[in-house]
């Protein structure tokens, strides 16, 4: 088994930040990529995001997540590279396939934007305990029902990972080879998908019963076991993010 969270327990500045500030960062960084959509600028935001991952000591942990989104990114490049309506300037061709500058520029922007999103979410998810975040949000007046949904979503990936481990054990203990060479592992991967999805659905149902039976959706006022954390420079960080957004908007409007 293992814990049902993507959170990585480390001691870093980012870990000590208020989950709400991190949440604000996610929103701000994504918003910035729309307010100022030049690739160079987005690359800047991306750089800062990666920097935060490094400071949070979770850069390595974010790599699988980034890698996974690469699949999505790759298809974006291809589609945009080929089919963008403004395609005019031929850049290069691989065999019969022609790439155009316009398409690629748009594609590059998109790629960077997706990376920013994935990166910013990684900062949030990998350095924040899910219960701490939901606790914070509920304290700020969010309904527990929404908290319930957020928790379930955050649990989804780690839950699948745990289910995968469980089913792999069930399979190898009944004679299906899952260890060793890459080919063996790839072969073992496919029979895993169906059961993992089904089991995860069941699990999600089970966890949601467990939450509900312990009064998570209860209408009364909640209290919290852990003392309210003092978050350093909370207001300053939040203020800074808001100012940056405002500046970006102003820049966009007058620039």
């Amino acid at each position: 088994m293992g814990s049902m969270t993507l959170y990585v327990e480390k001691n870093s500045l980012i870990h000590h930040l208020d989950p709400l500030v991190k949440l604000l960062y996610v929103a701000a960084s994504i918003a910035l990529t729309y307010i100022l959509p030049e690739p160079l600028f987005i690359a800047g935001v991306l750089f800062i995001t990666f920097l935060l991952l490094v400071v949070g000591k979770v850069f390595r942990n974010s790599l699988p997540i980034v890698a996974l989104s690469m699949v999505l990114i790759f298809s974006l490049v291809i589609v945009q590279g080929f089919f963008h309506p403004d395609n005019a300037t031929e850049l290069f061709a691989i065999g019969p396939v022609v790439f155009y500058e316009e398409g690629l520029t748009v594609a590059l922007g998109l790629v960077l934007r997706v990376l920013v999103m994935v990166g910013a979410f990684s900062v949030l998810i990998l350095t924040t305990r899910p219960d701490e975040m939901v606790e914070r949000l509920i304290k700020k007046g969010m309904s527990p029902k929404i908290g319930h949904v957020i928790l379930s979503v955050l649990q989804l990936i780690p839950q699948m990972r745990a289910t995968m481990g469980k089913i792999t054990d069930a399979q190898r203990s009944r004679g299906m080879e899952t260890e060793g060479k890459l080919l063996v592992r790839i072969k073992a991967f496919f029979p895993l998908i169906g059961p993992v999805v089904l089991n995860s659905l069941n699990e999600t149902k089970e966890r949601s019963i467990a939450l509900e039976m312990r009064g998570f959706d209860a209408p009364g006022k909640k209290t919290f076991l852990n003392e309210e954390k003092i978050y350093p420079y909370n207001k300053q960080f939040a203020g800074m993010l808001v100012i940056i957004i405002l500046l970006a908007i102003v820049w966009r409007v007058i620039g």
Partner: peptide, 22 residues
Amino acid sequence: TAAQLAKRMGLVFQNPNDQVFK
């Protein structure tokens, strides 16, 4: 590997939910 060993040894898990997946 556990899979090779499976030809000779069977283990019924404590929690059936950990074992049943079909």
